[in-house]
Amino acid sequence: MTGLSGVPEGVPQIRRGIGAIDWHRLTWQMRRSPLAVVGLVIIILVLIAIVVVPAWLPIDPNRINLRARLAGPSWVHWFGTDEVGRDILARVLHGGRISVGVGVFVVVVSASLGTMIGGLSGILGGWLDTLVMRLMDVVLAVPSLVLTMALAAALGPSLWNAMLAIALVRIPVYVRLARGQTLVIREADYVKAARVFRATPLQILRWHVAPNILSPILVQATLDLGAAMLMAAALSFIGLGAQPPAAEWGAMIAAGRNYILDQWWYSAFPGGAILLTAVGFNLLGDGLRDIIDPRQKARS
């Protein structure tokens, strides 16, 4: 029976459909996937470094000291200083908040919007579905960096606009994913039953579809965190992303490229930070996919 709130009663087993998350199984499997564990450890360390450490590190990332410009790594400045004497360690740590924050924002926005659109499109079907999917095809047909560049240029170069642009470009991926899964689930008996009981499409999405498509979305989202971060860095690198004096990793590499011959530390540390963080997200996402992907699960 479906209650007033649309909560299905008496059918708890459907929560563990093809794509539902089994946390117990997940943690058990994680131990068997060393790469995923490495990824997880990296992410935890990076998060500690960028969230906790700056709180008690007494260095202002934007303080200029023209007398200490372009100083190499030392006990005072572990990562050296930049062309106006700012401490690169402090900037890398603070910049991480921006870079990782961009990744999280983009993924949360595009995954939730994309899942909603894709799920509803799949449930409703018909011409609306066709229209939505064609539109997504068109968006997917434009090379993503070009679209983000054009959007960032149109809306004005700022980190916020770059984030919106990247989120927009990532939406179709989730729409397709969610719709594909929804089409399968739609035909399940319990969903047909819910329809008979006049559940609204939103209710079906919330109570029947969403729990079942969550894990592929989660895997995709984890993988996307790294990609979104890299894309934001790329936009900043060509001047369409984060603006001064904000420390963002891509922008720091862009500024440091002119000093790369004599002051390697300027671009090496932010570059290494991006690489490390993206590796963390991708290892974790890869491992999760291996564990969760039903096709591969059958063989493991």
Binding site: N62, I64, L66, E83, V84, A153, G156, P157, G239, L240, Q243, P244, P245, N258
Partner: peptide
């Protein structure tokens, strides 16, 4: 001009000393 940004940062710091808050707008 690549020098504009460091100059702007320096001006921002100078004016901060005089009690004026400057917000930088780096535009296309």
């Amino acid at each position: 001009d690549p020098n504009w940004q460091p100059i702007a940062l320096a001006v921002q710091a100078n004016l901060a000393d005089a009690g004026v808050t400057v917000s930088l707008e780096n535009l296309a």
